[in-house]
Write a protein that binds this DNA or RNA. Structure first.
Length: 274
DNA sequence: AGGATCAAACAAGGAGTTCC
DNA sequence: GGAACTCCTTGTTTGATCCT
């Protein structure tokens, strides 16, 4: 499923033939992603770590992961009976600790996390539309703009974006105005119930929380080990590629969860129509 | 507690080899 | 000749350990 989406070599240009099948390279990248091991520690029955790492870097730099990811997402949506183009999205961020240093590492005072923030825009199925990794010291509202900037060009039908109350319940609620003015997006805050402490299942918002949970199953993403933010973003894409490919192949890696029953889906659709 | 030192890990690039 | 690959080097940061 993935191989046809990888960049093709021009046979007329010659060159040394590939030694390792693309499948083996992808498997090696997936091994690092899922096991969370260091590149140099990949087992010898996979591709040599530096060959796999080179391809990982190359495919990050030339946007191959993005293209594969987007193509599979379209297919999953179609297989789900939906329009490939989403009409609504959910935004949220997650802080991940880093300890190896590198680009854009900062301190999130609110969560007491030193590391990076993963800012995700997902569709109503929880599939990733956009992922931006930045310093944990960047405020959520500033990070949100990074994710939302240019969304309309990529996903022209998205008009509505649900966000956590925290994004707008602040004195400077500039995000809503900014999004409407620059992106033509309507930001809708999902309010929290102030009486309930801790985690709450909020309509719409559980979709993106579940996506973070999917990503968290990949040990590489339990923390942020990458030195480059581009690599951190690519790892998220690869994790979603793995998940979506498995789903298209009829093998669930991650359960949709008990909430994804027919009844719950109707309820969710009703909420959406409201 | 603070400094010095070492090793591990990631990033990046170059040199050299291989093979069509 | 060109691309993929292997091997090697350098830079940077961090954690572990030892010493004072």
């Amino acid at each position: 499923m993935i191989e046809p989406l990888l960049p093709e070599r021009d046979p007329r240009r010659g060159g040394r033939p590939l030694k390792f099948p693309r499948r083996l390279i992808v498997d090696t990248v997936l091994y690092v992603l899922v096991s969370g091991c260091a590149w140099r520690l990949v087992p010898h029955d996979l591709a040599p770590w530096d060959a796999a790492y080179r391809w990982f870097r190359a495919w990050t730099a030339d946007g191959t992961w993005d293209r594969v990811h987007d193509a599979l997402r379209d297919r999953v949506r179609v297989a789900d009976g939906r329009d490939p183009q989403p009409s609504a999205a959910v935004l949220d961020s997650q802080s991940a600790r880093s300890h190896q240093g590198g680009q854009a590492i900062g301190y999130d005072a609110g969560k007491r996390v030193r590391g990076r923030k993963r800012h995700l825009l997902v569709d109503t199925c929880g599939l990733v539309l956009r992922a931006v990794v930045h310093s944990a010291s960047v405020q959520d509202r500033a990070g949100a703009k990074l994710v939302l900037a240019g969304v309309r060009e990529l996903f022209p039908q998205v008009g509505l974006v649900w966000v956590d109350g925290g994004y707008v319940n602040v004195i400077d609620a500039g995000l809503v105005g900014w999004a409407a003015e620059h992106e033509g997006l309507e930001i809708v805050a999902v309010p929290r119930n102030a009486d309930v402490k801790g985690f709450q299942v909020l309509p719409r918002r559980w979709v993106v929380e579940r996506t973070f949970s999917w990503l968290g199953r990949c040990r590489r993403l339990a923390r942020d080990y990458e030195r480059k933010t581009a690599h951190a973003e690519a790892m998220i894409k690869v994790a979603m590629i793995r998940l979506m490919a498995a789903r298209l192949a009829g093998e669930e890696i991650e359960p949709h969860g008990p909430i994804e029953t027919e009844a719950a889906r109707r309820l969710a659709d009703d909420l959406m129509n409201e």
